[in-house]
């Protein structure tokens, strides 16, 4: 029987293979929501979904794509942003 605390769904369940081949149930803390784009709201790619403590120990380059607005805007929104910016400039010229 699982422990009482493991019967509620506060902890997520992870199946792990033991060295002997048996599949065991592990209980882990739940992950936070994935990072999302600031303008369209889709989940960002290249941004890991981890607990703050794990994120703290990760290098900066592992936490976001290496481009302007990396980790803030999705690539589509970033492109459209720079496109509109360029068109403003070209109109002024």
């Amino acid at each position: 029987m699982p422990r009482g605390m493991h019967k509620s769904r506060t902890l997520r369940r992870v199946y792990r293979k033991a060295p002997g081949g048996a599949v065991k149930l592990h209980y882990r803390t739940r992950k936070p929501k994935g990072a999302s784009c600031g303008s369209c709201g889709t989940t960002l790619k290249g941004v890991p979904r981890e607990r703050p403590k794990k994120m703290m120990n990760m290098p900066k380059t592992a936490k976001r794509p290496e481009r302007p607005f990396g980790g803030v805007l999705c690539s589509k929104c970033m492109r459209s942003h720079f496109k509109s910016e360029a068109r403003k400039v070209s109109v002024n010229v």
């Binding site: 481009r67 970033m78 720079f82």
Partner: peptide
Amino acid sequence: LAVKIAGRDAGK
């Protein structure tokens, strides 16, 4: 003249 809109040189 053009502006790069993708990748790490975006906005340049």
